[in-house]
Design a binder for these strands. Sequence first.
DNA 1: CCTACAAGCTCTAGCGACTAGAGGATCAAG
DNA 2: CTTGATCCTCTAGTCGCTAGAGCTTGTAGG
Lengths: 151, 151
Amino acid sequence: MTFSIGILSRRAGVKVPTIRYYEQVGLMPSPPRTDGQQRRYGDAEVARLNFIRHARELGFEVDAIRELLAMSAQPEESCAEVDRLARRHLAEVEQRITRLIALRTELQRMVTECGHGRVGECRVIQVLADHGECDHDHGGGRPGSTGFAEA
Amino acid sequence: MTFSIGILSRRAGVKVPTIRYYEQVGLMPSPPRTDGQQRRYGDAEVARLNFIRHARELGFEVDAIRELLAMSAQPEESCAEVDRLARRHLAEVEQRITRLIALRTELQRMVTECGHGRVGECRVIQVLADHGECDHDHGGGRPGSTGFAEA
DNA sequence: CCTACAAGCTCTAGCGACTAGAGGATCAAG
DNA sequence: CTTGATCCTCTAGTCGCTAGAGCTTGTAGG
Protein backbone atom coordinates (compact mmCIF):
# COMPACT_ATOMS: atom_id res chain seq x y z
CA MET A 1 0.00 0.00 0.00
CA THR A 2 2.68 2.50 0.88
CA PHE A 3 6.22 2.41 -0.38
CA SER A 4 9.59 4.11 -0.17
CA ILE A 5 11.01 6.89 -2.28
CA GLY A 6 13.15 4.38 -4.17
CA ILE A 7 10.08 2.42 -5.27
CA LEU A 8 8.30 5.62 -6.24
CA SER A 9 11.40 6.56 -8.19
CA ARG A 10 11.28 3.34 -10.20
CA ARG A 11 7.52 3.45 -10.73
CA ALA A 12 7.50 6.99 -12.06
CA GLY A 13 10.88 7.04 -13.74
CA VAL A 14 12.16 10.00 -11.73
CA LYS A 15 15.39 9.90 -9.76
CA VAL A 16 15.26 9.91 -5.99
CA PRO A 17 17.05 13.23 -5.44
CA THR A 18 14.78 14.79 -8.04
CA ILE A 19 11.72 13.68 -6.09
CA ARG A 20 13.11 15.27 -2.94
CA TYR A 21 13.83 18.38 -4.96
CA TYR A 22 10.23 18.46 -6.22
CA GLU A 23 9.05 18.24 -2.64
CA GLN A 24 11.32 21.12 -1.70
CA VAL A 25 9.91 23.35 -4.45
CA GLY A 26 6.34 22.35 -3.72
CA LEU A 27 5.52 20.17 -6.71
CA MET A 28 5.23 17.06 -4.58
CA PRO A 29 3.57 16.89 -1.17
CA SER A 30 5.48 16.30 2.04
CA PRO A 31 4.52 12.69 2.54
CA PRO A 32 3.99 10.88 5.82
CA ARG A 33 7.12 9.44 7.40
CA THR A 34 8.05 6.28 9.21
CA ASP A 35 9.25 6.46 12.79
CA GLY A 36 12.74 6.70 11.34
CA GLN A 37 11.79 9.70 9.18
CA GLN A 38 11.66 7.84 5.89
CA ARG A 39 9.09 9.00 3.33
CA ARG A 40 6.16 6.74 2.47
CA TYR A 41 4.16 7.19 -0.72
CA GLY A 42 1.00 5.80 -2.34
CA ASP A 43 -0.40 5.45 -5.85
CA ALA A 44 -1.61 9.05 -6.01
CA GLU A 45 1.99 10.19 -5.81
CA VAL A 46 2.98 7.92 -8.67
CA ALA A 47 0.28 9.55 -10.81
CA ARG A 48 1.30 13.02 -9.76
CA LEU A 49 4.95 12.35 -10.44
CA ASN A 50 4.13 10.90 -13.85
CA PHE A 51 2.23 14.07 -14.64
CA ILE A 52 5.20 16.17 -13.58
CA ARG A 53 7.66 14.06 -15.54
CA HIS A 54 5.61 14.23 -18.69
CA ALA A 55 5.15 17.97 -18.38
CA ARG A 56 8.90 18.38 -17.86
CA GLU A 57 9.59 16.23 -20.93
CA LEU A 58 7.37 18.60 -22.86
CA GLY A 59 9.50 21.45 -21.58
CA PHE A 60 7.08 23.07 -19.13
CA GLU A 61 8.84 24.98 -16.40
CA VAL A 62 8.35 24.08 -12.77
CA ASP A 63 6.23 27.19 -12.18
CA ALA A 64 3.95 26.26 -15.06
CA ILE A 65 3.64 22.71 -13.76
CA ARG A 66 2.68 23.99 -10.35
CA GLU A 67 -0.14 25.89 -12.02
CA LEU A 68 -1.17 22.95 -14.17
CA LEU A 69 -1.33 20.72 -11.11
CA ALA A 70 -3.40 23.27 -9.23
CA MET A 71 -5.81 23.55 -12.15
CA SER A 72 -6.11 19.81 -12.61
CA ALA A 73 -7.32 19.63 -9.03
CA GLN A 74 -10.31 21.78 -10.04
CA PRO A 75 -11.99 19.64 -12.73
CA GLU A 76 -15.17 21.74 -12.70
CA GLU A 77 -13.37 24.95 -13.60
CA SER A 78 -13.05 26.18 -17.15
CA CYS A 79 -9.92 24.95 -18.82
CA ALA A 80 -9.25 28.30 -20.47
CA GLU A 81 -6.25 28.90 -18.24
CA VAL A 82 -4.84 25.47 -18.96
CA ASP A 83 -5.24 26.20 -22.64
CA ARG A 84 -3.57 29.57 -22.30
CA LEU A 85 -0.59 28.05 -20.51
CA ALA A 86 -0.17 25.34 -23.10
CA ARG A 87 -0.47 27.81 -25.98
CA ARG A 88 2.02 30.15 -24.45
CA HIS A 89 4.46 27.31 -24.04
CA LEU A 90 3.83 26.22 -27.61
CA ALA A 91 4.59 29.76 -28.80
CA GLU A 92 7.87 29.69 -26.85
CA VAL A 93 8.84 26.37 -28.38
CA GLU A 94 8.06 27.72 -31.83
CA GLN A 95 10.23 30.75 -31.19
CA ARG A 96 13.09 28.56 -30.06
CA ILE A 97 12.72 26.47 -33.21
CA THR A 98 12.80 29.56 -35.39
CA ARG A 99 15.93 30.84 -33.74
CA LEU A 100 17.65 27.47 -33.86
CA ILE A 101 16.88 27.11 -37.56
CA ALA A 102 18.48 30.48 -38.23
CA LEU A 103 21.51 29.32 -36.26
CA ARG A 104 21.63 26.10 -38.20
CA THR A 105 21.58 27.96 -41.51
CA GLU A 106 24.44 30.16 -40.40
CA LEU A 107 26.48 27.25 -39.08
CA GLN A 108 25.87 25.24 -42.24
CA ARG A 109 27.07 28.11 -44.37
CA MET A 110 30.15 28.47 -42.20
CA VAL A 111 31.18 24.86 -42.40
CA THR A 112 30.42 24.36 -46.08
CA GLU A 113 32.44 27.45 -46.98
CA CYS A 114 35.43 26.31 -44.99
CA GLY A 115 38.11 25.39 -47.50
CA HIS A 116 39.85 23.06 -45.02
CA GLY A 117 43.07 24.99 -45.40
CA ARG A 118 44.79 27.05 -42.73
CA VAL A 119 43.08 28.88 -39.90
CA GLY A 120 44.04 32.19 -41.48
CA GLU A 121 41.66 31.61 -44.37
CA CYS A 122 39.02 29.70 -42.43
CA ARG A 123 35.52 31.00 -43.11
CA VAL A 124 34.36 29.82 -39.71
CA ILE A 125 36.83 32.09 -37.97
CA GLN A 126 36.21 34.95 -40.39
CA VAL A 127 32.47 34.88 -39.94
CA LEU A 128 32.82 34.78 -36.16
CA ALA A 129 35.28 37.67 -36.25
CA ASP A 130 33.10 39.84 -38.46
CA HIS A 131 29.43 39.84 -37.70
CA GLY A 132 28.79 41.78 -40.94
CA GLU A 133 29.54 38.63 -42.91
CA CYS A 134 26.76 36.85 -41.22
CA ASP A 135 23.57 37.48 -43.12
CA HIS A 136 24.89 38.45 -46.54
CA ASP A 137 28.27 37.53 -47.95
CA HIS A 138 29.93 40.58 -49.40
CA GLY A 139 33.03 38.60 -50.28
CA GLY A 140 36.65 38.50 -49.23
CA GLY A 141 37.19 38.63 -45.51
CA ARG A 142 40.86 39.46 -45.29
CA PRO A 143 43.04 36.43 -44.66
CA GLY A 144 45.59 36.39 -41.88
CA SER A 145 45.50 36.90 -38.16
CA THR A 146 42.34 38.26 -36.60
CA GLY A 147 44.46 40.58 -34.46
CA PHE A 148 42.62 39.95 -31.22
CA ALA A 149 43.97 40.64 -27.83
CA GLU A 150 45.19 37.52 -26.06
CA ALA A 151 43.56 36.28 -22.90
CA MET B 1 43.46 55.23 -27.69
CA THR B 2 42.46 53.40 -24.56
CA PHE B 3 39.02 53.43 -23.06
CA SER B 4 36.93 52.24 -20.12
CA ILE B 5 34.90 49.08 -19.74
CA GLY B 6 31.72 51.09 -20.31
CA ILE B 7 32.92 52.26 -23.73
CA LEU B 8 34.05 48.75 -24.60
CA SER B 9 30.63 47.55 -23.54
CA ARG B 10 28.88 49.94 -25.94
CA ARG B 11 31.29 49.28 -28.80
CA ALA B 12 30.95 45.53 -28.62
CA GLY B 13 27.37 45.27 -27.47
CA VAL B 14 28.21 43.25 -24.36
CA LYS B 15 27.14 44.31 -20.88
CA VAL B 16 29.76 45.49 -18.42
CA PRO B 17 29.31 42.71 -15.84
CA THR B 18 29.46 40.18 -18.66
CA ILE B 19 32.83 41.54 -19.76
CA ARG B 20 34.15 41.18 -16.22
CA TYR B 21 32.74 37.68 -16.15
CA TYR B 22 34.53 36.86 -19.40
CA GLU B 23 37.75 38.10 -17.85
CA GLN B 24 37.15 35.88 -14.84
CA VAL B 25 36.67 32.77 -16.97
CA GLY B 26 39.62 33.56 -19.19
CA LEU B 27 37.88 34.59 -22.41
CA MET B 28 39.07 38.18 -22.11
CA PRO B 29 42.55 39.26 -20.99
CA SER B 30 43.20 41.04 -17.71
CA PRO B 31 43.70 44.52 -19.12
CA PRO B 32 46.01 47.24 -17.80
CA ARG B 33 44.53 49.41 -15.07
CA THR B 34 44.57 53.08 -14.21
CA ASP B 35 46.09 54.22 -10.92
CA GLY B 36 42.61 53.88 -9.49
CA GLN B 37 42.33 50.23 -10.65
CA GLN B 38 39.95 50.89 -13.53
CA ARG B 39 40.33 48.70 -16.62
CA ARG B 40 41.59 50.26 -19.86
CA TYR B 41 41.01 48.62 -23.23
CA GLY B 42 42.03 49.09 -26.87
CA ASP B 43 40.63 48.15 -30.29
CA ALA B 44 41.93 44.58 -30.13
CA GLU B 45 39.61 43.93 -27.20
CA VAL B 46 36.64 45.28 -29.15
CA ALA B 47 37.42 42.78 -31.92
CA ARG B 48 37.89 39.93 -29.48
CA LEU B 49 34.68 40.73 -27.66
CA ASN B 50 32.77 40.93 -30.94
CA PHE B 51 34.08 37.49 -31.82
CA ILE B 52 32.95 36.17 -28.46
CA ARG B 53 29.54 37.79 -28.73
CA HIS B 54 28.95 36.44 -32.20
CA ALA B 55 30.02 32.96 -31.19
CA ARG B 56 27.69 33.12 -28.18
CA GLU B 57 24.84 34.26 -30.41
CA LEU B 58 25.50 31.19 -32.51
CA GLY B 59 25.21 29.13 -29.34
CA PHE B 60 28.84 28.11 -28.87
CA GLU B 61 29.67 27.36 -25.27
CA VAL B 62 32.33 29.31 -23.43
CA ASP B 63 34.70 26.33 -23.55
CA ALA B 64 34.31 26.06 -27.31
CA ILE B 65 34.89 29.79 -27.71
CA ARG B 66 38.07 29.55 -25.68
CA GLU B 67 39.28 26.93 -28.15
CA LEU B 68 38.15 28.93 -31.17
CA LEU B 69 40.00 31.97 -29.89
CA ALA B 70 43.14 29.96 -29.27
CA MET B 71 42.96 28.52 -32.78
CA SER B 72 42.35 31.86 -34.42
CA ALA B 73 45.58 33.05 -32.87
CA GLN B 74 47.40 30.38 -34.94
CA PRO B 75 46.51 31.37 -38.53
CA GLU B 76 49.14 29.07 -40.05
CA GLU B 77 47.69 25.95 -38.46
CA SER B 78 45.24 23.69 -40.24
CA CYS B 79 41.67 24.65 -39.62
CA ALA B 80 40.56 21.03 -39.28
CA GLU B 81 39.96 21.48 -35.55
CA VAL B 82 37.95 24.64 -36.12
CA ASP B 83 35.89 22.77 -38.65
CA ARG B 84 35.37 19.87 -36.28
CA LEU B 85 34.18 22.16 -33.51
CA ALA B 86 31.75 23.95 -35.77
CA ARG B 87 30.38 20.70 -37.18
CA ARG B 88 29.92 19.23 -33.74
CA HIS B 89 28.03 22.30 -32.68
CA LEU B 90 25.93 22.14 -35.82
CA ALA B 91 25.05 18.54 -35.02
CA GLU B 92 23.96 19.56 -31.51
CA VAL B 93 21.80 22.34 -32.88
CA GLU B 94 20.20 19.91 -35.31
CA GLN B 95 19.44 17.51 -32.48
CA ARG B 96 17.84 20.27 -30.46
CA ILE B 97 15.73 21.23 -33.46
CA THR B 98 14.58 17.66 -33.91
CA ARG B 99 13.57 17.35 -30.29
CA LEU B 100 11.81 20.68 -30.24
CA ILE B 101 9.83 19.81 -33.35
CA ALA B 102 8.61 16.63 -31.67
CA LEU B 103 7.59 18.71 -28.66
CA ARG B 104 5.82 21.19 -30.89
CA THR B 105 3.84 18.42 -32.56
CA GLU B 106 2.75 17.07 -29.21
CA LEU B 107 1.83 20.50 -27.86
CA GLN B 108 -0.09 21.35 -31.01
CA ARG B 109 -2.08 18.16 -30.73
CA MET B 110 -2.82 18.90 -27.10
CA VAL B 111 -4.10 22.41 -27.68
CA THR B 112 -6.10 21.65 -30.82
CA GLU B 113 -7.84 18.76 -29.09
CA CYS B 114 -8.81 20.85 -26.12
CA GLY B 115 -12.56 21.38 -26.27
CA HIS B 116 -12.41 24.56 -24.15
CA GLY B 117 -14.78 23.09 -21.68
CA ARG B 118 -14.04 22.20 -18.09
CA VAL B 119 -10.69 21.07 -16.75
CA GLY B 120 -12.12 17.60 -16.13
CA GLU B 121 -12.39 16.97 -19.86
CA CYS B 122 -9.35 18.97 -20.92
CA ARG B 123 -7.14 17.05 -23.30
CA VAL B 124 -4.11 19.02 -22.17
CA ILE B 125 -4.49 17.73 -18.64
CA GLN B 126 -5.37 14.24 -19.77
CA VAL B 127 -2.37 13.89 -22.01
CA LEU B 128 -0.09 15.17 -19.28
CA ALA B 129 -1.61 12.78 -16.79
CA ASP B 130 -1.29 9.75 -19.03
CA HIS B 131 1.89 9.43 -20.97
CA GLY B 132 0.36 6.57 -22.94
CA GLU B 133 -1.84 9.05 -24.77
CA CYS B 134 1.15 10.84 -26.07
CA ASP B 135 2.23 9.14 -29.27
CA HIS B 136 -0.95 7.39 -30.31
CA ASP B 137 -4.45 8.33 -29.29
CA HIS B 138 -6.35 5.26 -28.13
CA GLY B 139 -9.45 7.25 -27.29
CA GLY B 140 -11.37 8.21 -24.19
CA GLY B 141 -9.28 9.44 -21.34
CA ARG B 142 -11.67 9.23 -18.42
CA PRO B 143 -13.14 12.58 -17.47
CA GLY B 144 -13.08 13.82 -13.93
CA SER B 145 -10.41 14.43 -11.36
CA THR B 146 -6.95 13.13 -12.03
CA GLY B 147 -6.77 11.90 -8.45
CA PHE B 148 -3.31 13.18 -7.71
CA ALA B 149 -1.94 13.76 -4.31
CA GLU B 150 -1.91 17.40 -3.31
CA ALA B 151 1.28 19.28 -2.71
C1' DC C 1 18.01 -11.89 17.70
C1' DC C 2 21.74 -10.09 15.21
C1' DT C 3 24.32 -8.61 11.60
C1' DA C 4 25.11 -6.76 6.97
C1' DC C 5 24.29 -3.62 3.77
C1' DA C 6 21.20 -1.38 0.67
C1' DA C 7 18.69 2.40 0.87
C1' DG C 8 17.21 6.19 3.31
C1' DC C 9 18.13 10.88 5.61
C1' DT C 10 19.96 16.08 5.73
C1' DC C 11 22.96 19.41 4.29
C1' DT C 12 26.03 21.76 1.29
C1' DA C 13 27.99 22.78 -3.04
C1' DG C 14 28.35 22.67 -8.04
C1' DC C 15 26.84 23.15 -13.03
C1' DG C 16 26.53 27.32 -17.12
C1' DA C 17 26.33 31.85 -18.28
C1' DC C 18 25.26 35.24 -16.63
C1' DT C 19 22.49 39.04 -13.58
C1' DA C 20 21.55 41.90 -9.49
C1' DG C 21 22.74 44.47 -5.68
C1' DA C 22 25.52 46.38 -1.79
C1' DG C 23 28.79 49.55 -0.50
C1' DG C 24 32.40 52.13 -1.68
C1' DA C 25 36.17 54.43 -4.92
C1' DT C 26 37.35 57.08 -9.05
C1' DC C 27 37.07 59.91 -13.07
C1' DA C 28 35.68 63.77 -16.08
C1' DA C 29 33.02 67.77 -16.84
C1' DG C 30 31.48 72.19 -15.35
C1' DC D 1 36.04 71.71 -6.14
C1' DT D 2 31.93 69.50 -6.45
C1' DT D 3 28.76 66.60 -8.62
C1' DG D 4 27.26 62.44 -10.33
C1' DA D 5 28.05 58.99 -13.71
C1' DT D 6 30.85 55.31 -13.93
C1' DC D 7 33.91 52.18 -11.99
C1' DC D 8 35.57 48.70 -8.40
C1' DT D 9 35.03 44.07 -5.59
C1' DC D 10 32.31 40.88 -3.45
C1' DT D 11 28.42 37.98 -2.61
C1' DA D 12 24.32 35.81 -3.86
C1' DG D 13 20.65 34.55 -6.97
C1' DT D 14 18.71 32.36 -11.35
C1' DC D 15 16.89 27.11 -13.17
C1' DG D 16 16.48 22.29 -12.58
C1' DC D 17 18.65 19.40 -11.10
C1' DT D 18 23.11 16.40 -9.64
C1' DA D 19 26.91 14.87 -6.58
C1' DG D 20 28.89 13.95 -2.41
C1' DA D 21 29.76 13.70 2.69
C1' DG D 22 28.49 11.68 6.75
C1' DC D 23 25.10 9.60 9.25
C1' DT D 24 20.66 6.63 10.26
C1' DT D 25 17.10 3.24 9.14
C1' DG D 26 14.83 -0.74 7.14
C1' DT D 27 14.94 -5.42 5.82
C1' DA D 28 16.50 -10.00 4.63
C1' DG D 29 19.28 -13.88 5.79
C1' DG D 30 21.42 -16.74 9.08
